[in-house]
Measured scan of single mutants.
Amino acid sequence: YETDHQDYCEVCQQGGEIILCDTCPRAYHMVCLDPDMEKAPEGKWSCPHCEKE
């Protein structure tokens, strides 16, 4: 199925295993987040940009 999420990391602009924000189209590698994540979040997750809003 098609999503509106970007298929690359917002921080480093590379693809790969990325996690998707449930609020906006941004996507991130877990290691590119500050602080980085050990494992993928369970349930709904909002990226740092959305958390600030």
Rank of each mutant, 00 (worst) to 15 (best):
K44V: 08
P35W: 05
G15K: 10
R26F: 04
K52I: 02
E53K: 04
T23V: 05
G43K: 11
Q14K: 11
D7P: 04
P41H: 03
H5P: 14
C47A: 01
A27L: 07
D34E: 13
D22P: 01
M37L: 10
C24H: 03
I18C: 06
C47G: 00
W45P: 07
E38C: 10
A27R: 07
L20P: 14
K44S: 13
G15S: 11
T3F: 12
C32H: 09
Q6S: 12
H5A: 15
E51N: 03
C50K: 04
K52V: 07
K52H: 15
L20V: 11
E51P: 11
G15N: 04
V11L: 14
G15D: 14
V11N: 15
G16N: 14
S46K: 02
Y28I: 04
E10H: 03
H49M: 03
Y8N: 08
E42P: 12
G43P: 06
I18S: 09
E51T: 07
T3Y: 12
Q14A: 04
C24Y: 00
Q13A: 15
H5S: 15
M37P: 12
T3N: 08
P41E: 13
D36F: 04
C47S: 00
E10A: 07
M30A: 10
Q6A: 05
T3I: 13
P48R: 13
K52S: 14
E51M: 10
D4V: 14
R26E: 03
L20T: 12
V11Y: 11
M30W: 08
E42S: 08
D36L: 02
K39S: 06
H49C: 15
E42F: 04
D34P: 07
G15V: 06
E53A: 06
C50I: 02
K52C: 08
G43L: 05
C9R: 01
H29M: 01
Q13T: 11
H49W: 07
A40W: 08
D7Q: 14
Q6D: 13
G43Y: 06
C12A: 00
C12I: 04
E42C: 11
D36I: 05
E51Q: 03
Y1A: 15
P35I: 11
G16R: 11
T3P: 06
G15A: 10
T23N: 06
D4L: 11
C12S: 00
Q6E: 04
S46Q: 12
D36S: 15
E53I: 04
H5M: 15
Q14W: 04
E53Y: 04
D7A: 09
R26W: 01
A40Y: 02
H49V: 06
D34A: 09
C9K: 02
G16A: 08
P41V: 06
A40F: 12
E53R: 10
Y1F: 13
R26A: 08
D22C: 08
M30F: 06
D4W: 07
Y8C: 06
Q13D: 14
L20A: 13
G15C: 02
E10Q: 03
D22F: 08
C47L: 01
E2R: 15
R26D: 05
E51D: 08
L33S: 14
K52T: 13
E53V: 03
P48Q: 08
S46V: 09
K52D: 03
C50H: 14
E42K: 12
E2I: 14
Y1I: 15
M37N: 14
M30S: 06
S46T: 09
C47R: 00
E51H: 03
A40T: 07
W45Q: 13
Y28T: 04
H29I: 00
Q6P: 07
C24G: 01
C50L: 02
A27K: 05
Y8G: 04
C47T: 03
P35Q: 04
L33P: 03
M37A: 09
W45R: 07
V31F: 10
H49N: 03
C9I: 00
D22K: 12
C47N: 02
Q14I: 09
Y1K: 15
R26N: 03
T23C: 05
C50M: 01
I18G: 10
P41M: 10
V31T: 03
W45C: 09
L20R: 13
C24N: 03
C47K: 01
P48C: 11
C12W: 00
T3Q: 04
C9P: 01
H5L: 15
E2S: 15
M30D: 05
P25R: 10
C24M: 01
I19M: 15
I18Q: 07
A27S: 09
C47D: 02
W45L: 06
S46N: 12
D34V: 09
S46I: 02
V31I: 05
C50T: 02
D7M: 10
G43W: 07
E17R: 08
P25W: 05
L20F: 09
K44H: 04
L20I: 12
V11R: 14
T3M: 14
H29F: 00
L20C: 10
I19W: 06
K44Q: 15
D36K: 13
K44E: 13
P25F: 13
M37V: 13
P35N: 11
K44L: 07
Q14H: 06
K39A: 10
K39R: 09
C21V: 00
E38T: 01
E38I: 08
C21M: 00
P35F: 11
P35H: 11
Y28N: 03
I18M: 12
Y28H: 12
C12R: 00
S46G: 05
R26S: 08
P41C: 06
Y1W: 15
D36T: 13
D7V: 06
G15I: 01
Q14C: 04
H5D: 01
I18K: 04
E17Y: 10
W45A: 11
D36M: 06
P25M: 06
L20D: 14
M30Y: 03
P48F: 07
W45N: 10
C47M: 00
E38Y: 09
P35T: 12
E53H: 03
D22W: 06
E42N: 13
E42Q: 11
G15M: 11
C32Q: 00
Y8F: 15
W45K: 02
A40V: 09
C50N: 04
V31E: 09
Q6V: 04
M30N: 05
T23E: 04
K39Q: 04
C32R: 01
P41A: 14
E10P: 07
Y8Q: 15
D22Y: 03
S46W: 12
I19C: 05
K39W: 07
A27E: 01
Q6F: 02
D22T: 13
M30V: 08
G15H: 01
K52R: 08
V31N: 13
C21I: 01
Y8V: 08
P48K: 04
E17P: 01
C9L: 01
C9E: 00
E38G: 10
Q13W: 05
C32Y: 00
M37E: 03
C24A: 00
K39Y: 09
G16E: 14
V11W: 11
C50Q: 01
M30L: 07
E2W: 15
D36Y: 02
R26L: 05
A40C: 10
C9F: 00
G15R: 13
V31Y: 13
P48L: 08
D34Q: 05
C21D: 02
H49D: 05
E53T: 01
C9T: 01
Q13G: 12
H29T: 01
P41N: 15
P48V: 10
M30G: 08
C9M: 02
C47Q: 01
E10M: 02
E38L: 06
Y8P: 12
H49Y: 07
D34S: 07
D4H: 15
Q13Y: 08
C47V: 00
A40L: 13
I19G: 08
E53G: 05
G16F: 02
